[in-house]
Design a protein around this nucleic acid. Structure first.
Lengths: 161, 161
DNA sequence: CCGTTTCACTTGACTGAGCAAGTGAATGGA
DNA sequence: TCCATTCACTTGCTCAGTCAAGTGAAACGG
Protein backbone atom coordinates (compact mmCIF):
# COMPACT_ATOMS: atom_id res chain seq x y z
CA UNK A 1 0.00 0.00 0.00
CA UNK A 2 2.63 2.47 1.00
CA UNK A 3 4.63 1.06 -1.89
CA UNK A 4 1.95 2.16 -4.34
CA UNK A 5 2.04 5.62 -2.88
CA UNK A 6 5.81 5.76 -3.11
CA UNK A 7 5.93 4.69 -6.70
CA UNK A 8 3.28 7.23 -7.66
CA UNK A 9 4.84 10.10 -5.76
CA UNK A 10 7.00 12.78 -7.28
CA UNK A 11 10.69 12.44 -6.57
CA UNK A 12 14.00 14.14 -7.10
CA UNK A 13 14.19 17.09 -9.45
CA UNK A 14 10.54 16.86 -10.39
CA UNK A 15 9.55 17.01 -6.75
CA UNK A 16 11.76 20.06 -6.27
CA UNK A 17 10.34 21.75 -9.34
CA UNK A 18 6.80 21.19 -8.24
CA UNK A 19 7.40 22.01 -4.59
CA UNK A 20 8.99 25.38 -5.32
CA UNK A 21 6.35 26.26 -7.90
CA UNK A 22 3.57 25.22 -5.52
CA UNK A 23 5.07 27.48 -2.89
CA UNK A 24 5.10 30.39 -5.33
CA UNK A 25 1.48 29.64 -6.17
CA UNK A 26 0.65 30.01 -2.49
CA UNK A 27 2.80 32.95 -1.46
CA UNK A 28 2.92 35.26 -4.45
CA UNK A 29 -0.83 35.94 -4.71
CA UNK A 30 -0.93 36.45 -0.95
CA UNK A 31 1.91 38.97 -1.13
CA UNK A 32 0.30 40.87 -4.01
CA UNK A 33 -3.08 40.94 -2.32
CA UNK A 34 -1.51 42.18 0.90
CA UNK A 35 0.13 45.13 -0.85
CA UNK A 36 -3.03 46.11 -2.72
CA UNK A 37 -5.13 45.81 0.40
CA UNK A 38 -2.74 48.00 2.36
CA UNK A 39 -2.35 50.68 -0.30
CA UNK A 40 -5.74 50.81 -1.93
CA UNK A 41 -8.10 48.53 -0.02
CA UNK A 42 -8.42 46.41 -3.16
CA UNK A 43 -8.03 42.71 -3.83
CA UNK A 44 -5.95 41.67 -6.81
CA UNK A 45 -9.14 40.53 -8.45
CA UNK A 46 -10.80 43.91 -7.99
CA UNK A 47 -7.67 45.63 -9.23
CA UNK A 48 -7.84 43.48 -12.34
CA UNK A 49 -11.37 44.72 -12.99
CA UNK A 50 -10.29 48.36 -12.67
CA UNK A 51 -7.31 47.65 -14.92
CA UNK A 52 -9.46 46.12 -17.65
CA UNK A 53 -11.99 48.95 -17.51
CA UNK A 54 -9.33 51.66 -17.43
CA UNK A 55 -7.83 50.37 -20.66
CA UNK A 56 -11.15 49.84 -22.43
CA UNK A 57 -12.68 52.36 -24.86
CA UNK A 58 -14.76 54.83 -22.83
CA UNK A 59 -13.73 52.88 -19.74
CA UNK A 60 -16.65 50.62 -20.48
CA UNK A 61 -17.04 46.87 -20.97
CA UNK A 62 -19.83 44.37 -20.97
CA UNK A 63 -19.91 42.24 -17.85
CA UNK A 64 -19.42 39.04 -19.83
CA UNK A 65 -16.37 40.45 -21.63
CA UNK A 66 -14.97 41.60 -18.32
CA UNK A 67 -15.52 38.13 -16.90
CA UNK A 68 -13.43 36.77 -19.76
CA UNK A 69 -10.58 39.17 -19.07
CA UNK A 70 -10.65 38.44 -15.36
CA UNK A 71 -11.10 34.71 -15.94
CA UNK A 72 -13.99 34.83 -13.53
CA UNK A 73 -17.40 33.32 -13.22
CA UNK A 74 -20.16 35.77 -13.93
CA UNK A 75 -21.43 35.42 -10.40
CA UNK A 76 -18.08 36.24 -8.83
CA UNK A 77 -17.71 39.23 -11.14
CA UNK A 78 -21.25 40.37 -10.42
CA UNK A 79 -20.56 40.52 -6.70
CA UNK A 80 -17.18 42.16 -7.11
CA UNK A 81 -18.57 44.85 -9.40
CA UNK A 82 -21.42 45.37 -6.94
CA UNK A 83 -18.81 46.11 -4.27
CA UNK A 84 -16.96 48.51 -6.55
CA UNK A 85 -20.24 50.15 -7.47
CA UNK A 86 -21.14 50.67 -3.83
CA UNK A 87 -17.89 52.60 -3.47
CA UNK A 88 -18.78 54.73 -6.46
CA UNK A 89 -15.91 53.42 -8.58
CA UNK A 90 -17.98 51.65 -11.22
CA UNK A 91 -21.46 52.17 -12.61
CA UNK A 92 -23.66 49.63 -14.37
CA UNK A 93 -26.46 50.09 -16.88
CA UNK A 94 -28.18 47.92 -19.47
CA UNK A 95 -26.60 47.93 -22.92
CA UNK A 96 -28.90 50.16 -25.04
CA UNK A 97 -28.29 47.94 -28.06
CA UNK A 98 -29.26 44.73 -26.25
CA UNK A 99 -30.87 44.89 -22.84
CA UNK A 100 -29.52 41.50 -21.83
CA UNK A 101 -26.00 42.83 -21.63
CA UNK A 102 -24.86 45.01 -18.78
CA UNK A 103 -22.25 47.69 -19.37
CA UNK A 104 -19.85 48.46 -16.57
CA UNK A 105 -18.12 51.84 -16.65
CA UNK A 106 -15.28 53.15 -14.55
CA UNK A 107 -16.26 56.42 -12.89
CA UNK A 108 -14.00 59.40 -12.32
CA UNK A 109 -13.51 58.26 -8.72
CA UNK A 110 -12.73 54.79 -10.00
CA UNK A 111 -10.07 56.10 -12.35
CA UNK A 112 -8.58 57.97 -9.47
CA UNK A 113 -8.56 54.91 -7.22
CA UNK A 114 -6.97 52.91 -10.01
CA UNK A 115 -4.33 55.57 -10.69
CA UNK A 116 -3.54 55.70 -7.01
CA UNK A 117 -3.21 51.94 -6.56
CA UNK A 118 -1.18 51.32 -9.71
CA UNK A 119 2.29 52.64 -8.84
CA UNK A 120 2.52 50.59 -5.66
CA UNK A 121 1.28 47.50 -7.44
CA UNK A 122 3.68 47.88 -10.34
CA UNK A 123 6.51 48.49 -7.92
CA UNK A 124 5.57 45.31 -6.06
CA UNK A 125 5.46 43.23 -9.24
CA UNK A 126 8.90 44.56 -10.13
CA UNK A 127 10.33 43.93 -6.70
CA UNK A 128 8.90 40.46 -6.20
CA UNK A 129 8.97 39.03 -9.71
CA UNK A 130 10.75 40.97 -12.42
CA UNK A 131 13.79 42.50 -10.76
CA UNK A 132 15.09 39.27 -9.19
CA UNK A 133 15.20 37.63 -12.62
CA UNK A 134 17.68 38.02 -15.43
CA UNK A 135 16.45 39.00 -18.87
CA UNK A 136 16.98 35.42 -20.02
CA UNK A 137 15.02 34.09 -17.06
CA UNK A 138 12.13 36.44 -17.75
CA UNK A 139 12.09 35.19 -21.32
CA UNK A 140 12.15 31.60 -20.08
CA UNK A 141 9.37 32.36 -17.64
CA UNK A 142 7.16 33.65 -20.43
CA UNK A 143 7.71 30.47 -22.44
CA UNK A 144 7.24 28.23 -19.40
CA UNK A 145 4.02 30.00 -18.44
CA UNK A 146 2.69 29.73 -21.97
CA UNK A 147 3.40 26.00 -22.07
CA UNK A 148 1.65 25.44 -18.76
CA UNK A 149 -1.34 27.49 -19.87
CA UNK A 150 -1.55 25.55 -23.11
CA UNK A 151 -1.55 22.25 -21.24
CA UNK A 152 -4.32 23.51 -18.97
CA UNK A 153 -6.47 24.61 -21.89
CA UNK A 154 -5.84 21.41 -23.83
CA UNK A 155 -6.57 19.15 -20.91
CA UNK A 156 -9.44 21.24 -19.63
CA UNK A 157 -12.00 18.57 -20.60
CA UNK A 158 -13.75 21.12 -22.82
CA UNK A 159 -11.34 20.24 -25.59
CA UNK A 160 -14.17 18.73 -27.60
CA UNK A 161 -15.94 22.01 -28.27
CA UNK B 1 -3.32 61.99 -14.85
CA UNK B 2 -3.51 59.27 -17.41
CA UNK B 3 0.08 60.07 -18.20
CA UNK B 4 1.11 59.14 -14.67
CA UNK B 5 -0.71 55.86 -15.01
CA UNK B 6 0.89 55.17 -18.36
CA UNK B 7 4.39 55.87 -17.15
CA UNK B 8 3.89 53.66 -14.10
CA UNK B 9 2.34 50.77 -15.99
CA UNK B 10 4.18 47.69 -17.12
CA UNK B 11 5.00 47.56 -20.80
CA UNK B 12 6.51 45.37 -23.44
CA UNK B 13 8.31 42.22 -22.39
CA UNK B 14 7.80 42.88 -18.70
CA UNK B 15 4.07 43.22 -19.25
CA UNK B 16 4.05 39.94 -21.17
CA UNK B 17 6.06 38.19 -18.49
CA UNK B 18 3.77 39.38 -15.73
CA UNK B 19 0.57 38.83 -17.67
CA UNK B 20 1.34 35.21 -18.51
CA UNK B 21 2.55 34.47 -14.98
CA UNK B 22 -0.54 36.14 -13.49
CA UNK B 23 -2.68 33.94 -15.71
CA UNK B 24 -0.88 30.84 -14.48
CA UNK B 25 -1.40 32.03 -10.92
CA UNK B 26 -5.12 32.14 -11.61
CA UNK B 27 -5.64 29.01 -13.70
CA UNK B 28 -3.22 26.45 -12.38
CA UNK B 29 -4.51 26.31 -8.78
CA UNK B 30 -8.05 26.16 -10.13
CA UNK B 31 -7.15 23.25 -12.42
CA UNK B 32 -5.43 21.34 -9.63
CA UNK B 33 -8.29 21.92 -7.21
CA UNK B 34 -10.79 20.81 -9.80
CA UNK B 35 -9.01 17.48 -10.32
CA UNK B 36 -8.66 16.80 -6.60
CA UNK B 37 -12.27 17.73 -5.95
CA UNK B 38 -13.45 15.41 -8.70
CA UNK B 39 -11.29 12.46 -7.75
CA UNK B 40 -11.12 12.65 -3.99
CA UNK B 41 -13.43 15.44 -2.84
CA UNK B 42 -10.39 17.27 -1.50
CA UNK B 43 -9.06 20.78 -1.95
CA UNK B 44 -5.39 21.18 -2.75
CA UNK B 45 -4.94 22.63 0.71
CA UNK B 46 -6.51 19.58 2.37
CA UNK B 47 -4.43 17.30 0.18
CA UNK B 48 -1.35 19.15 1.40
CA UNK B 49 -2.32 18.37 4.98
CA UNK B 50 -2.72 14.67 4.21
CA UNK B 51 0.58 14.69 2.33
CA UNK B 52 2.45 16.24 5.24
CA UNK B 53 0.92 13.84 7.75
CA UNK B 54 1.47 10.79 5.56
CA UNK B 55 5.20 11.53 5.37
CA UNK B 56 5.58 12.37 9.03
CA UNK B 57 6.84 9.87 11.65
CA UNK B 58 3.84 7.93 12.98
CA UNK B 59 1.70 10.01 10.62
CA UNK B 60 1.58 12.60 13.37
CA UNK B 61 2.45 16.30 13.55
CA UNK B 62 1.76 19.18 15.86
CA UNK B 63 -0.79 21.59 14.47
CA UNK B 64 1.67 24.46 14.52
CA UNK B 65 4.27 22.46 12.58
CA UNK B 66 1.62 21.46 10.10
CA UNK B 67 0.62 25.10 9.70
CA UNK B 68 4.22 25.86 8.81
CA UNK B 69 4.34 23.14 6.17
CA UNK B 70 1.06 24.24 4.66
CA UNK B 71 1.95 27.95 4.93
CA UNK B 72 -1.36 28.48 6.63
CA UNK B 73 -2.74 30.48 9.48
CA UNK B 74 -3.50 28.39 12.51
CA UNK B 75 -7.14 29.24 12.27
CA UNK B 76 -7.42 28.11 8.67
CA UNK B 77 -5.63 24.90 9.53
CA UNK B 78 -7.80 24.35 12.56
CA UNK B 79 -10.97 24.49 10.49
CA UNK B 80 -9.53 22.35 7.70
CA UNK B 81 -8.37 19.67 10.14
CA UNK B 82 -11.79 19.81 11.81
CA UNK B 83 -13.31 18.98 8.43
CA UNK B 84 -10.89 16.12 7.86
CA UNK B 85 -11.57 14.89 11.38
CA UNK B 86 -15.30 14.87 10.78
CA UNK B 87 -14.65 12.53 7.85
CA UNK B 88 -12.61 10.27 10.07
CA UNK B 89 -9.37 10.92 8.19
CA UNK B 90 -7.51 12.70 10.97
CA UNK B 91 -7.68 12.57 14.75
CA UNK B 92 -6.54 15.22 17.22
CA UNK B 93 -5.42 14.94 20.81
CA UNK B 94 -3.38 17.06 23.20
CA UNK B 95 0.37 16.46 23.14
CA UNK B 96 1.11 14.40 26.27
CA UNK B 97 4.44 16.16 26.70
CA UNK B 98 2.90 19.65 26.57
CA UNK B 99 -0.84 20.08 26.72
CA UNK B 100 -0.75 23.32 24.76
CA UNK B 101 0.22 21.53 21.59
CA UNK B 102 -2.27 19.51 19.62
CA UNK B 103 -1.14 16.41 17.75
CA UNK B 104 -2.89 15.59 14.50
CA UNK B 105 -2.66 12.01 13.28
CA UNK B 106 -3.66 10.50 9.97
CA UNK B 107 -6.04 7.61 10.52
CA UNK B 108 -6.14 4.39 8.51
CA UNK B 109 -9.04 5.81 6.52
CA UNK B 110 -7.07 8.97 5.98
CA UNK B 111 -4.09 7.05 4.63
CA UNK B 112 -6.41 5.27 2.28
CA UNK B 113 -7.99 8.50 1.08
CA UNK B 114 -4.54 9.96 0.56
CA UNK B 115 -3.31 6.90 -1.31
CA UNK B 116 -6.36 7.02 -3.51
CA UNK B 117 -6.08 10.72 -4.35
CA UNK B 118 -2.34 10.71 -4.99
CA UNK B 119 -2.00 8.99 -8.39
CA UNK B 120 -4.48 11.30 -10.07
CA UNK B 121 -2.91 14.33 -8.51
CA UNK B 122 0.61 13.33 -9.50
CA UNK B 123 -0.60 12.56 -12.99
CA UNK B 124 -2.18 16.00 -13.20
CA UNK B 125 0.97 17.75 -12.01
CA UNK B 126 2.91 15.86 -14.67
CA UNK B 127 0.44 16.59 -17.41
CA UNK B 128 -0.07 20.28 -16.63
CA UNK B 129 3.35 21.33 -15.41
CA UNK B 130 6.22 18.91 -15.79
CA UNK B 131 5.66 17.12 -19.07
CA UNK B 132 5.19 20.25 -21.21
CA UNK B 133 8.61 21.53 -20.10
CA UNK B 134 12.06 20.51 -21.21
CA UNK B 135 14.58 19.41 -18.62
CA UNK B 136 16.34 22.74 -18.99
CA UNK B 137 13.11 24.63 -18.50
CA UNK B 138 12.29 22.66 -15.36
CA UNK B 139 15.69 23.55 -14.02
CA UNK B 140 15.11 27.19 -14.90
CA UNK B 141 11.70 27.09 -13.26
CA UNK B 142 13.22 25.87 -10.01
CA UNK B 143 15.72 28.72 -10.02
CA UNK B 144 13.09 31.29 -11.01
CA UNK B 145 10.72 30.11 -8.29
CA UNK B 146 13.46 30.24 -5.71
CA UNK B 147 14.36 33.78 -6.66
CA UNK B 148 10.76 34.92 -6.44
CA UNK B 149 10.33 33.24 -3.08
CA UNK B 150 13.48 34.86 -1.77
CA UNK B 151 12.25 38.28 -2.83
CA UNK B 152 8.93 37.67 -1.08
CA UNK B 153 10.61 36.62 2.14
CA UNK B 154 13.09 39.48 2.05
CA UNK B 155 10.50 42.11 1.32
CA UNK B 156 7.86 40.61 3.54
CA UNK B 157 8.15 43.45 6.08
CA UNK B 158 9.04 40.94 8.78
CA UNK B 159 12.67 41.17 7.69
CA UNK B 160 13.55 42.92 10.94
CA UNK B 161 12.84 39.98 13.22
C1' DC C 1 2.32 28.64 45.88
C1' DC C 2 -0.54 32.05 43.35
C1' DG C 3 -1.47 35.46 40.02
C1' DT C 4 0.05 37.09 35.54
C1' DT C 5 1.74 36.21 31.01
C1' DT C 6 2.67 33.60 27.21
C1' DC C 7 1.49 29.78 24.08
C1' DA C 8 -1.08 27.03 21.03
C1' DC C 9 -4.76 26.62 19.43
C1' DT C 10 -10.29 27.26 18.85
C1' DT C 11 -14.36 29.76 17.92
C1' DG C 12 -17.77 33.58 16.70
C1' DA C 13 -18.79 37.11 13.50
C1' DC C 14 -18.21 38.61 9.06
C1' DT C 15 -16.70 38.60 4.11
C1' DG C 16 -15.95 36.52 -0.41
C1' DA C 17 -16.72 32.64 -3.80
C1' DG C 18 -19.26 28.76 -5.94
C1' DC C 19 -23.49 26.55 -7.30
C1' DA C 20 -27.99 26.49 -8.55
C1' DA C 21 -32.29 28.68 -9.04
C1' DG C 22 -34.43 33.02 -10.45
C1' DT C 23 -35.24 37.27 -13.50
C1' DG C 24 -35.92 40.04 -17.29
C1' DA C 25 -34.62 40.89 -22.24
C1' DA C 26 -34.25 39.04 -26.93
C1' DT C 27 -35.01 35.29 -30.31
C1' DG C 28 -37.10 31.44 -32.70
C1' DG C 29 -40.75 28.45 -34.12
C1' DA C 30 -45.71 27.30 -35.01
C1' DT D 1 -48.40 36.79 -32.56
C1' DC D 2 -47.63 34.30 -28.73
C1' DC D 3 -45.32 30.96 -26.10
C1' DA D 4 -41.05 28.57 -25.19
C1' DT D 5 -36.29 28.97 -25.11
C1' DT D 6 -31.91 31.12 -24.83
C1' DC D 7 -28.98 34.58 -22.97
C1' DA D 8 -26.80 37.56 -19.61
C1' DC D 9 -26.66 38.35 -15.65
C1' DT D 10 -28.30 38.34 -10.34
C1' DT D 11 -29.28 36.37 -5.96
C1' DG D 12 -30.09 32.89 -2.01
C1' DC D 13 -27.75 29.43 0.26
C1' DT D 14 -23.88 27.35 1.98
C1' DC D 15 -19.18 26.97 2.93
C1' DA D 16 -14.17 28.30 3.40
C1' DG D 17 -11.06 31.95 5.18
C1' DT D 18 -9.79 35.96 8.10
C1' DC D 19 -9.59 38.68 12.22
C1' DA D 20 -10.19 39.19 16.78
C1' DA D 21 -11.68 37.48 21.08
C1' DG D 22 -11.79 33.36 23.99
C1' DT D 23 -9.86 29.03 26.35
C1' DG D 24 -7.09 26.06 28.70
C1' DA D 25 -2.21 24.61 29.63
C1' DA D 26 2.51 25.76 30.87
C1' DA D 27 6.04 29.14 32.45
C1' DC D 28 7.49 32.85 35.14
C1' DG D 29 7.89 36.30 38.88
C1' DG D 30 7.49 37.37 43.52
Amino acid sequence: MTDDTESAALRGDDLQTWATLATVLEWLPAALDAQLLRDGDLTHFEYGILYALADAPEQTLRMSVLAGYANSSLSRLSRAVARLESRGWVRRRPDPSDGRFTLATLTKDGQEAYAQATPGHVETVHRLVLDPLTTAQKKQLREISRRILRSIRDGGEWSAS
